[in-house]
Computed example of a mutant assay.
Amino acid sequence: MGKLFCDSTTIAGTFQTTSPTVPWRDPQSPDLEAVDLFDQAKVVTTAATWDDVVGLEDQQRRQLQKLHAKGVLWKQPGDHGSSVVFRLSHGGEVSSDGNCLFTASQRAMARDVDAPELRRRTVKRFLEDLGSASEERREGITDAIRHMYSPDLRSGWGVHVVQEVKLLAKKEDRIALDSAIDELVQLGMQREMAAESIYKERCIPVNDGPSWAKYMSISGSPDDDEYDIITLQYTEEGLLSVDENRGGHAAAFGDDIAIECLATEFKRQIYVVKYT
């Protein structure tokens, strides 16, 4: 999967489509500060060819080279809309941790805004848009968040082999949580079952807008983050594992909601290109 970043001012007309998760906001709206972060020259001069990218299978490399050569066509909505062809170029390596969306965005936009700042501004944009959304829209956003991070474990097994539940544990509460888990273990409960019980009882589930904002603010910094991410993995038979994230290094991966907010905040169009 690749992501295309482009300056929205280069597209003829205004791309007015409603986000599936976050209300669309006009990039020309006067209440949004004009921030130009895209520098095509810097991206082109620093980009490597797909031959230089490590870790790709031959078939993947050929597909990416084909995309690079032919480009990706974007057509303005409407029968007589103009079209633009974007080239998919490799902008450099990023770590495969939860900050990869924001690190890649920083490189693509080629400006002095670091990944943590991009994450903060993405969360801020989300909360502002959520506050101005209609009740119906807020319910839709909540449903999307629950589907991703607090799924109904009674269903979905025809699609997923493993489903995950995300919980947020305050760093300052970790000692108390460990003590409560140890008490259950001493009573004869298995360690993972005890951990599941305590975390589900005392931690914050990621199941609505405010909890999503807390979750997406987590960059994996033991010193700066307020919360640690706890991940419960389930199969159809029951609990599979508990990732307690002891070191506090797990970061929240940028999801579709974050991509929409990032695009809105910096007046960019971000396209996700899937290739098989």
Rank of each mutant, 00 (worst) to 15 (best):
residue 197 S to P: 00
residue 143 D to Q: 13
residue 199 Y to F: 15
residue 76 Q to C: 12
residue 2 G to D: 01
residue 191 R to L: 04
residue 176 A to I: 10
residue 254 G to W: 00
residue 36 D to H: 14
residue 180 A to T: 02
residue 169 A to T: 01
residue 108 A to P: 02
residue 245 N to L: 01
residue 137 R to N: 06
residue 244 E to Q: 11
residue 50 W to I: 09
residue 124 K to R: 13
residue 44 V to G: 10
residue 213 A to R: 05
residue 182 D to H: 06
residue 255 D to E: 11
residue 89 S to I: 15
residue 122 T to E: 04
residue 93 E to R: 15
residue 187 L to K: 15
residue 238 G to V: 03
residue 192 E to Y: 09
residue 19 S to K: 07
residue 26 D to H: 04
residue 105 S to A: 15
residue 161 V to G: 10
residue 210 P to W: 01
residue 212 W to Y: 12
residue 178 D to K: 09
residue 205 P to Y: 01
residue 60 Q to V: 15
residue 171 K to P: 01
residue 186 Q to V: 03
residue 237 E to F: 11
residue 174 R to V: 11
residue 42 K to I: 12
residue 17 T to C: 14
residue 139 E to C: 08
residue 160 H to Q: 07
residue 230 I to G: 00
residue 101 L to V: 02
residue 258 A to N: 11
residue 146 R to K: 12
residue 200 K to N: 13
residue 54 V to C: 14
residue 135 E to H: 02
residue 140 G to E: 12
residue 18 T to R: 14
residue 129 D to Y: 05
residue 227 Y to K: 12
residue 83 S to L: 07
residue 47 A to F: 03
residue 270 I to Q: 07
residue 132 S to Y: 08
residue 251 A to M: 00
residue 86 F to H: 09
residue 45 T to Q: 15
residue 50 W to S: 06
residue 96 S to A: 15
residue 73 L to N: 04
